[in-house]
Amino acid sequence: MEHPTSEIKILTMAEMAAQGKEPEILFWVGCAGSFDERAQKITRDICKILNHVGIGFAVLGTEESCTGDPAKRAGNEFLFQMQAMVNIQVLNGYNIKKIVTGCPHCFNTIRNEYPGLGGNYEVIHHSQLIQQLINEGKLKTEGGESFKGKRITYHDPCYLGRGNNVYEAPRKALEVLDADLVEMKRCRSNGLCCGAGGGQMFKEPEKGNKDINIERMEDILESKATVVAAACPFCMTMLRDGVKHFEKEQEIQVLDIAEITARANGL
């Protein structure tokens, strides 16, 4: 059962600025987190975690716009830089210092590609925030759903893992669950892409003998995991499609690291 998010006060930067306040951290929701129904749940869970530990945060709301990541990977540098510069204007206008993102693509783009265009922020992915909170003892994994003994595997998103060498943070969030953690044969820097990166999310795959998420599903089935932990809304879509393809919706759940953390803490 999900607690309604309306209990939590979610302020936009504009609202905060009107009150003359500054948040500790800006939550960059991302397009998938804003519009994709499945990803919206993850967005709400990230808010619940932030609220639970008492971090003062804000979102940009309607002032947020695509980071330009899909345009850049697909070759439209022009559109990417247009998006980037407009976003940087907004972020700098609010004097933003620290950003947490709900998506590895936004994370990578703002962290690595915005500085060259005048946007310098401390950027973390939500799995890194969760790791930090666990390390500081602020998240205790209690009072919620028990994952004890559940067989969980983690799928590395390319732009978190290989792209930015973040392999441990999401695993840390799973280690505290006392679950039966299992790695797929292709994991960490060997992890297989879900098939959505580089603009593929928005087009039909090129001719081949298999879809990439089906290839990845075979790794998941081999791992015999009942929970697949994801950390990227695009991976989430691809992996869920894979589960559906094999008609394993009853046996295998695909959950984001934030959802697992929220559930374990009864949020």
């Binding site: 929701v29 919206q40 947020e64 928005f202």
Partner: peptide
């Protein structure tokens, strides 16, 4: 401002949909 055909004005709707 999004790769899908959604209105920019609806960006905060996730707050209510639960």
């Amino acid at each position: 401002g999004a790769p899908w055909k959604y209105s920019q004005a609806d960006r905060l709707n996730w707050k209510e949909n639960s």
